[in-house]
Design a protein around this nucleic acid. Sequence first.
RNA 1: GGGCGCGUAGCUCAGCGGUAGAGCACUGCCUUGACAUGGCAGGAGUCACUGGUUCGAUCCCAGUCGUGCCCACCA
Length: 917
Amino acid sequence: MEKSYQPQTIEGRWYRAWEEAGHFAPHGPGESYCIMLPPPNVTGSLHMGHAFQDTIMDVLTRFHRMKGDNTLWQTGMDHAGIATQMVVERQLAAQGVSRRDIGREKFERAVWEWKDSSGGTIARQMRRLGASVDWDNDRFTMDEDLSQAVTKVFVELYHDDLIYRGKRLVNWDPVLHTALSDLEVISTEENGHLWHICYPRVDGKGYVVVATTRPETLLGDTAVAVNPDDPRYNDLVGLKLELPLTDRTIPVITDKYVDAEFGTGCVKITPGHDFNDYEMGKRHSLPVINVLDDDATLNEQAPPAYRGLDRFVARKKIVADLEAAGLLEKVERHKMMIPRGDRSGAVVEPYLTDQWYVKIQPLADPAIEVVENGSIRFVPENWNKTYFDWMHRIEDWCISRQLWWGHRIPAWYDPDGNIFVGYDESDARKRHGLSDDVQLRQDEDVLDTWFSSALWPFSTLGWPGDSPRIQQYYPTSVLVTGFDIIFFWVARMIMMGLKFMGDVPFREVYIHGLIRDASGQKMSKSKGNVLDPLDLIDGIELETLVTKRTTGLMQPQMAPAIEKATRKDFPDGIQAFGCDALRFTFAALATNGRDIRFDLGRIEGNRNFCNKLWNAARYVLMSTQDHEIGPVGATGSCDRWIISRQHQMIARVQEHIGSYRLDLAAQRLYEFIWNEYCDWYLEFSKPVLQSGTAAEQNATRYTLLSVLETSLRALHPFMPFITEEIWQRIKIPLALDGETIMLQEFPGAGDIDKQAESDISWLQQVLQGIRNIRAELNVAPGKKLNIAFQSGTSADRDRQNRFAELLRGLGKIDDSQWLDDGADTTGYSVALVADLKVLVALKGLVDIEDELARLTKLMEKELSNLKRSEAKLANSRFVENAPPAVVETERGRQLAHQAKLAGLKEQFEKLEQLGER
RNA sequence: GGGCGCGUAGCUCAGCGGUAGAGCACUGCCUUGACAUGGCAGGAGUCACUGGUUCGAUCCCAGUCGUGCCCACCA
């Protein structure tokens, strides 16, 4: 074995071996366990969030697979309509071509070509992470069968009156020329203005001043509204106003919606370009005037002077014209929420169009119910509040998109505009009794990407076919995802699952936090603080990292600042930590309900942990090679102790994985392997292997191997590669015949051995006492000591006797003896283990003053502890009210502190006298 | 305007009614035949603040301050 762990030499090798052997395919005899991978976008590449999420899912998957469950981790990708179309359009644009130039068919072909050539990036990256997904059943939302599922769902919802086509205001992206759902609109606060505009009264008695943030929509105004209870404007009601810059007049109406406190208390009403105004327009039967085209330029409804102008150009011109006409009273600065498309970043326009909608309430009600009644459980639980909040206010879902990449809507129109929905054109004809001579034209639009994602838990399992997979794995076990797509995806899967499968799509939803950079910032390309998980695995030179972070920026002027920050944060680049260290770090940080600041210190520590494990294995193999290892009952106390400790560790790890506390599970594994197995058991084994009996040596060798082997199995879900590599080596001396660790059984917890635990605890305390004396009194670590024991119990004598060899070896002790209770101990330094005095002969080793100082420190600590105990016990209310067990514990503490303090004091006084002489 | 979090060692985070923990960083000693990516021994915290409940509060409750996020049609 190499002297240190070299992850890069083994990771790729093992992954290929597993995949080629088909180990990721579901096969266990036990219950079904299924996780759906949230399908990444085909355009995407693996970022820290994916790596984190994939680690969680892989830990769960590998754990359940080892438990014997019939475990499926379903993988696949999402066609990501808008995102993908934008990428391909950008590529075309680079060649000077637009999608309209080449037409729909050619464009779709171009997207497929691009998907085939570069869509596999994430899949390759997932392999680097060790993700044990079932590649044989890889799915893509645009696959033939998944597309059929989409069509079926659309058709059925339509015929159930749960999908309808309607003309209303939608969020319109004037850059992408498509409608968006409410969720795809991101509102952020931006600086704007509030223009106060005078609308002349037709009776010639002056003006009414309205305040608006959007003067250009004035051309579509069809009323001015005031609050009915606003005394200032009582006389205006029913009056007509001249709409500036037009030859129209509009009425003044009253509506409770108007806030008298805001602006002037008069609101211009533009039903064609504002959601509130649209509603108010309906209430008052106002006409709707649309003054915009689909690219947000002013259309023929606007006066000729403004036609064809972009909305923002028109705004300037209109303001200028109003000012020239003396109709602009004032302009104020105003902070306001600006809605933008989440993909294009363009300011979204409320726009009156025909779109397809899902009538959501009938679907939402049962979806609320299943979370309320616990059929679906959020982890952590407080996310169900977020879910309920949104579900109770949910609005109909606009599902049509004016794009080319996606599932085309299965609706056809006859020349009169009548709608016919069916699986395909002939089905639509058949359903509606249309003869072949009626001309039909298919709807041009495609469906929102999330429409097909909503079907993912069953469409990937073969629905609507009768695949056995769907029986086997639906409902799935747990969904692992981020809070950001609870509305986009989680809620919609629940609604569709209930509607079409008659059951929940998953039983639990584990919501994890967001991975941020070390200073708590969200990672983003534009901030230049992105870490690539593969760079943490393989390492990266500083210069390469700088280049990577500063190329392809949307704002190239940020490059110098990013470079500077990068050089400061990573002066030596990033080391290669290996996949297992990265995974273990993610697991250790996967605490509930909190975002994660990714800290390089943690991954470095875990890389060291890998090396520790590696070297422990190296020691075990070196110590056991050339020996016949018979399976023996572990009889030695140390052997029984480590096994007992391991049982407890395993029980906790199982428990923590079960409650999605991978951080706690990882911590237990780390502590057991490092602080118990390596720090203690391996050290215990050394004296035995040197001078123990043949039987003791055999038991020790077997325990070394078997505890390591068990630890590897427990650790495997977290660190698949190193555990496999070591397991393959130690299965030989253990004569195991499994092919791979990933198909071995996850270890079960056994009984605690109280006797062994208290014995070894005693041994540890004695050794720690001796070590403390050495360190505090600056005795050379290698220097052999003479020690003595005094005034212990018979149990102490028994243990001293049984562990004499271990004490001699690990304490570096030359000679030891028991002293009578009254014997002179002035030549010793003392450590106390309960009543037992462990005495280290000082002669010639140390200054008496140093020992006095050391004892003083110990006494002070003991005294303050004693005082605390005494104070508590002196409080009668404590003694009366606290549970008896607590009081008992406290009395025990008091006695222990008293004894210890007395022992220290006695030694201190003796030495002090010696010093004075 | 609603809702959800967070504030514990220098840093990143666990813990959560009975004497505060880990990793990294720090100090001292140590290249001892698994491992210096290491060993041993240490130092380090008014658990944001103020009240309340309790025999006892870092933990429960109320409020304050700081901080982050989500949702929301005041032009």
